[in-house]
Amino acid sequence: MLLINCPWCGPRDETEFHYGSEAHIGYPEKPEELTDKQWAEYIFYRNNPKGWFAERWVHNVGCRRWFNIWRNTVTHQFGPSYKPFTKQPSRPK
């Protein structure tokens, strides 16, 4: 069970959250100009790093708000969590 630091509520059990996969995937700015390949990348391709990963979670049985957090996919250690539309903290060492 992960202990996840919600930036609004503090550390809570993983079972209070829902996973949102990779963070910082924005909707294409000029969707009408995208090729099929670019659409495929936007819709289906996500990074899958072995190591630090900036990802989204939603605190769905708490404050019900989305946030971003750094997590290491090998050790499950968390780095800083941060609210949407705020500056991304640098990748933990």
Partner: peptide, 13 residues
Amino acid sequence: DAYNSYAQRGGFH
């Protein structure tokens, strides 16, 4: 388990 991982383990819940 819900999240990406390379750790070959998951949560007991």
